[in-house]
Design a protein around this nucleic acid. Sequence first.
DNA 1: TGTACATCAGTGAACGCGCGTTCACTGATGTAC
DNA 2: TGTACATCAGTGAACGCGCGTTCACTGATGTAC
Lengths: 228, 228
Amino acid sequence: MAGIRERARAETMGEIHRLAHAQLAEVGAAGLSLRAIARDLGMVSSAIYRYVPSRDDLLTMLIVEAFDDVGVVAERADAGIADRADLAARWSAVARAVREWALTHQPQFELVYGTPVRGYVAPPDTIAPATRSTAVLIQLLVEAEAQGRRPLVGPALPAVTTVELTALAERTGITVSPALFALGIAAWGQMLGCISIELFGHLHNVIDTPSAWFDAVMATAAVTLGLT
Amino acid sequence: MAGIRERARAETMGEIHRLAHAQLAEVGAAGLSLRAIARDLGMVSSAIYRYVPSRDDLLTMLIVEAFDDVGVVAERADAGIADRADLAARWSAVARAVREWALTHQPQFELVYGTPVRGYVAPPDTIAPATRSTAVLIQLLVEAEAQGRRPLVGPALPAVTTVELTALAERTGITVSPALFALGIAAWGQMLGCISIELFGHLHNVIDTPSAWFDAVMATAAVTLGLT
DNA sequence: TGTACATCAGTGAACGCGCGTTCACTGATGTAC
DNA sequence: TGTACATCAGTGAACGCGCGTTCACTGATGTAC
């Protein structure tokens, strides 16, 4: 029976998680408040410090979780395509999954891909989780290039960019040419950008069915990247 | 000499503008505070209400200004290309100008293209200014299509998207086909997305010279759009 | 098995700070006769 | 040109609310002998 205390602690910790997510959805990252969580928990405000060292630590926790969450979503979407050689289908599936995650987890999306929270500096612990979803995309680039596929339009990279991306590839052990790497990052930027403009309301009175538009342009991006 | 009052009022109004922008840069849109502006102005906090009806109105003012600002920047960049037939050069110039504006006016960029401020609902007055910068891009699409240029990869649009974009074109008097329209919006999303990931820190340890990378991928996007 | 001590969850008060907005007021500027 | 009245910028106090964080404390749970 070791741990009535331990179990209670784990349970409270879980509640804090739950409430933090709920808060995020209601008031956004900037409005995340330890006092409010303590209140919802039925505790006095100072008691929360038995569980969370500070507000920034709670934010870090949420950011790491969100990065991980979207990473899992991307990985699952990719794994769901049976025909592994169909890189375009895998890309489209990942893009669609990330968009759907963003729609159903808008506050988490804002937390990691939106405007950074003022006064908060992300500690190094957040770097590794951040790469999880991008790793899925990079894997597609690696496979595409290994099979001799090339982007439709090879970008005219300035020397400095070629140097930087070559160094990055070497440093991380990723075997992708600078040209495709540059376009891959841009495609990732496009995916996030298209999700952002939808989520942040810039498609109002422009496109009423964003999912259809998004899927179509992401499929086109896959062709442009040379994934077909 | 009519208007020592009038002149004082205009001057104070100008100061409020200036201080609001400074505040935006320091604490971000979420932290924008009427009290702080009054303080900086050397006024008592309630006096600010002689000039600004409410905090939300100040936000609206700043948003409208920012939209207008980036619109002017885009227009000027476009106008700066002497060879009007070189649509790709015009697109690249606009993209570069918008990115540079975003870098030098980060808080304004966040205000209009970043995470929306919680609790603030944009009034209809903000819609018209928002379209100013996009109008520049759309003009490029119109000219491209008028000259018979086509995107490298025609997107396979679902029927619903074709219908929506046809209706939008008719409603606004823009003579752009749904296919190009869809890709144009996606290119605009890419531009904003690539700027966002740079500004929000997602290129740290990835690309050290974002301007070079950005220009290269935007030039490639112009080719893909069929602007060459 | 029982007792003594250590651990730790939660309390309650406090510090010092912030915010938007209202309201009755003073005193200077502007205007109409 | 001078006076009476209207306008309006700015004051000062207040309402009612929020926040993060610290600190001495009580009382229950866990542990070592």
